[in-house]
Write a protein that binds this DNA or RNA. Structure first.
Lengths: 229, 229
DNA sequence: CCCGGTGCTTGATCCAGATCAAGTTTGCCG
DNA sequence: CGGCAAACTTGATCTGGATCAAGCACCGGG
C-alpha cells in the first residue's frame, strides 16, 4: 500500500475505502497531494475540469452566480469529500477554497479507469451524490422557510457538525473559516443581518466569539432550538 | 421483451434504458403499473419505503416538513424520473402525487437484484442523482437570491420545461397541476404573493391564464428575462 | 338551477430584513 | 510601534413580501 495512502485521511469514509490494496497502489501512483491557499479557484463554472480531488482538510465553497452578480453558496465540502462532477465535461457551479485546503488530486482519466475496474468505487461516488442531494434539500428548507435567526443558528450547527471529520456529532470550539460575506451568500442574507444575529446569539450566551473567527458553542441544545430543530 | 415495457415511456431516458431485452423481461415480471389520484402519499418521510417506481406520467411533489408545520417542496419529479431513495431504509422527504400519476412500481429487492446483475443500471441511477443535485442547487439560488416576481417566472419556466417529456425545450400551453399553496411551498413564498405575481405576468401580457389552471406562455424570452435568466 | 365549500384574487396594513451610513476591531507591513 | 486597509459591527431608515381581511370564480351535489 502506498505510504501516502496509509496516512490518507480520505480513506476514512472517503471514496478510496472502496479499493483493495492493489487498486489503491495503482491509483496512488497517479495522484498528487497539493495544498492551496484560501481564495484559490478550484473549479470554474462552465469550464471543463482537468481533474478531480479528495479533500484531505479545509473547507471548500460551491458557488453559483447569476448574470447580474448575485451569488449563492450552494454547498460546503469538508474532508473526506470527493470534489468534482463525475461523468460531465463541466458543471455550472464553481468551487473555491474557503480556507487553506489540502487535496489529493488525480486526473479524470485515472478516475474513469479505476471506476471501470472497481464497480464499488462508482457505488461510493453514487452514495456521496445521494448524501449531497439530501444536504442540498435540507438547505432548501433553510433558504425557503427559515427566519434570519434560524438560518444563522442552522449554519453554526452545520459547521460544527462537519468542520472536524474526526469529531462525531458537534464540535464545540472551532474557527469559522468563512468571511461574513460568504456566510451571507450561503444563508441568502446580507452581511449586516448575519452580523446582527451572531451578536444576538453571543448576547444570549448561546455562543462565544473570539477575535471574530473562533466560535465556542456554550449551549448546543439552545442552538438547536434557535435553528428550528 | 415484455409488451408492457415495449410501450413504456420510462424507457425514453429512464433507468430501464440501461437493460438489455433479457434483463428487461426479467424486471418486467416483477413490476406492476399503477395509477394514483392527486393527493396520494407515495413516500412518507422517515418510514421505510416498500419499493420504488418509475414515473410514467404526471407530477410528483417532494416535500420536507419542519416540526412546527412549515413546509418546503424540495423538488418536482416528472416522467421518466425514478422515484425513491436507493440504498437507504428511509428518507426524510415525503413524496405526494400532485396530479393523477401513472407509475411502474417494483420492490426494493427486485431493484437490488437487477443492480447486482447490471452495473449500467447503477450508473443510470447515479446519473439521475447527479441531475437531481444540479436541479436542487439551481433551485437554491432561486430560494436564496431571487425576488418574488423572479421566483414565479422561474417556476413557470421549470414547469414548461418538464411537464411534457416529449416536448424538447419549453411547452407553451400546459396545465399547472399544482395548487397555489403548493407553488408557494415550492417558491418559499405565500399564496397571496404567488397570486399577485401571476396576475402581474398576465397583465404584462407575458402569459395568459384560463380557468386558473391552464397557462399559455405568450413570450418565452420575456419570461426568461423576468426569471433573472 | 341553486347552494355551499374550496381555492383563488385583490386590497390594506405591518414588520423582518435590506439598504444606507458611520464607527470599530483586527491584522498587515513598513 | 504607527498607519492603513479590509473586515466587521452597530445604528437609522426604507421596502418587499407577510399578514390580515374581504370578496370572487369554479365545481360538485342535491
Amino acid at each position: 500500500m502506498p505510504v501516502l495512502c496509509q496516512a490518507c485521511e480520505a480513506r476514512h469514509g472517503g471514496i478510496c475505502g472502496a479499493l483493495d490494496p492493489g487498486q489503491l497502489q495503482q491509483l496512488g501512483r497517479q495522484t498528487a497531494r497539493r495544498e492551496v491557499a484560501a481564495g484559490t479557484q478550484l473549479v470554474a463554472a462552465g469550464v471543463p475540469a482537468d481533474g478531480y480531488a479528495n479533500i484531505l482538510g479545509g473547507v471548500v465553497k460551491l458557488i453559483k452566480l447569476m448574470p447580474d452578480g448575485r451569488q449563492q453558496i450552494v454547498g460546503l465540502q469538508f474532508a473526506p469529500d470527493f470534489l468534482g462532477r463525475p461523468f460531465a465535461d463541466s458543471s455550472d457551479v464553481s468551487a473555491e477554497a474557503a480556507s487553506t485546503v489540502r487535496l489529493c488530486v488525480f486526473s479524470r482519466s485515472a478516475l474513469e479507469r479505476m471506476v471501470a475496474q472497481a464497480p464499488a468505487l462508482e457505488h461510493r461516488l453514487h452514495q456521496q451524490a445521494l448524501r449531497e442531494l439530501d444536504d442540498a434539500r435540507e438547505w432548501m428548507i433553510t433558504l425557503g422557510r427559515k427566519s434570519a435567526p434560524e438560518r444563522v443558528a442552522s449554519f453554526l450547527l452545520l459547521l460544527a457538525a462537519h468542520i472536524d471529520p474526526l469529531v462525531p456529532g458537534y464540535s464545540t470550539t472551532f474557527d469559522i473559516t468563512l468571511k461574513r460575506a460568504d456566510i451571507a451568500d450561503f444563508l441568502g442574507l446580507t452581511i449586516e443581518t448575519v452580523s446582527r444575529n451572531l451578536s444576538a446569539l453571543r448576547k444570549a450566551g448561546i455562543i462565544s466569539i473570539e477575535r471574530r473567527r473562533c466560535i465556542t458553542i456554550n449551549d448546543t441544545a439552545a442552538l438547536e432550538v434557535a435553528a428550528g430543530r
